[in-house]
């Protein structure tokens, strides 16, 4: 028996897609420049750092937690990686930077597990404190100064490629994004540990009683989040060629925004990295369109905030 098609359910489930299509149509009507090749490349570039951070954040939210420390992780990874390019060489700097991000995420999970913090609110405040520590370490490490890649003497071809290189019509950062998206999707849907994360988020007590290793899930989700934040940091500083010790500020709320707008529910258990891609796409397209239409940056923040509120509200309506 086929389910009867209901417009209401369709709209609730695919609201983001509908919103994206509407947004694109309206912008094309008002501003035909939107479809120019230049603007499309631009959108692909803007898709950069936030999408990586949001992919990592997706797992945290599916697992029923939250992570505010990505702001600190991005700042610290960016300044450490840039400062290591000269003394150690670019490959080593890249590896150490990404490993540092994963380690900081791991550290978060250790603090949470040792405290037995299993609710979103507890995780929120602990990761907020950790974020303050990480960003302060970034400030101490650089003495508050911004690191410029143009001041370095070492070879930095990898970072140049990540920042501005292209393969065919796709930018390198976009390719890295596709690869990590594929890897994370397979991890989430096809492996035991990936599925365990969903069960952990669905109901922690039930998951633990059914023998799901929820501690391992917590370690995994925070490590992945730290890792993806580190990759996001590398993409970010490669593109803007500077690394300020406060570079990651604001990424935590924007990442949560994209994940939730994409339709991953904050209650945990449900969601997918693919949905997050839609969320990031909507946010990116929205700022691109609003820039083209000449909306002031402050109004853009207001709109983003309202979209977040409406998305959470709708998400909640769907549950009931």
């Amino acid at each position: 028996m086929t389910k009867r098609f209901s417009l209401k359910n369709f709209l609730l489930n695919y609201l983001v897609l509908v919103a994206i299509v509407l947004l694109v149509i309206i912008t094309i009507m008002v501003e035909p420049k939107f479809l120019s090749g230049e603007n499309l490349t631009n959108i692909m570039r803007q898709f950069g750092p936030l999408s990586f951070v949001s992919l990592g954040m997706t797992f945290v939210i599916i697992g029923g937690f939250i992570d505010l420390s990505v702001a600190g992780i991005i700042s610290l990874v960016a300044v450490v990686t840039v400062s290591l390019i000269d003394p150690l060489g670019q490959v080593q700097a890249l590896i150490i930077g990404v490993a540092l991000g994963a380690f900081l995420g791991f550290l978060n999970s250790m603090v949470l597990i040792s405290a037995g913090a299993l609710t979103q609110a507890e995780a929120l405040f602990i990761t907020f404190g950790m974020s303050a520590v990480y960003s302060a370490i970034a400030l101490i490490y650089t003495d508050g100064a911004t690191q410029h890649m143009s001041w370095l003497t070492g070879n930095q071809s990898i970072f140049d490629a990540i920042g501005s290189g292209t393969v065919g019509i796709l930018s390198v950062s976009f390719l890295i994004f596709l690869v990590s998206l594929g890897a994370l999707w397979i991890f989430h849907n096809k492996t035991y540990n990936g599925r365990a994360i969903s069960y952990t988020g669905g109901n922690k007590v039930a998951a633990e009683l059914s023998g799901i290793p929820i501690k391992r899930s917590v370690v995994l989700i925070y490590t992945i989040c730290g890792l993806m934040a580190a990759i996001g940091a590398v993409v970010l500083f490669s593109r803007i060629t500077t690394a300020a010790p406060i570079i990651g500020k604001g990424y935590e709320t924007n990442a949560i925004l994209s994940v939730v707008v994409g339709g991953t529910t904050l209650k945990g258990g449900k969601g997918s990295v693919l949905r997050t891609v839609l969320g990031v796409l909507l946010i990116t397209l929205m700022s691109n369109c609003m820039n083209l239409l000449g909306v002031s940056p402050y109004m853009q923040i207001v709109l983003k905030g309202s979209i977040l509120v409406v998305a959470i509200w709708l998400d909640n309506r769907k549950e009931q």
């Binding site: 939250i66 979103q120 609110a121 929120l124 709320t253 949560i256 925004l257 939730v260 904050l266 209650k267 002031s296 940056p297 402050y298 109004m299 853009q300 923040i301 207001v302 709109l303 983003k304 905030g305 309202s306 977040l308 509120v309 959470i312 509200w313 909640n316 309506r317 009931q320």
Partner: peptide, 23 residues
């Protein structure tokens, strides 16, 4: 009234108001 999660919705409202302040 709408039974949403307090801390995330107030975070969103805070972000919205920050935009209003800047405007």
């Amino acid at each position: 009234q709408q039974k949403t999660e307090a801390f995330i919705i107030t975070l969103g409202i805070g972000m919205l108001i920050k935009g209003v302040n800047q405007q």
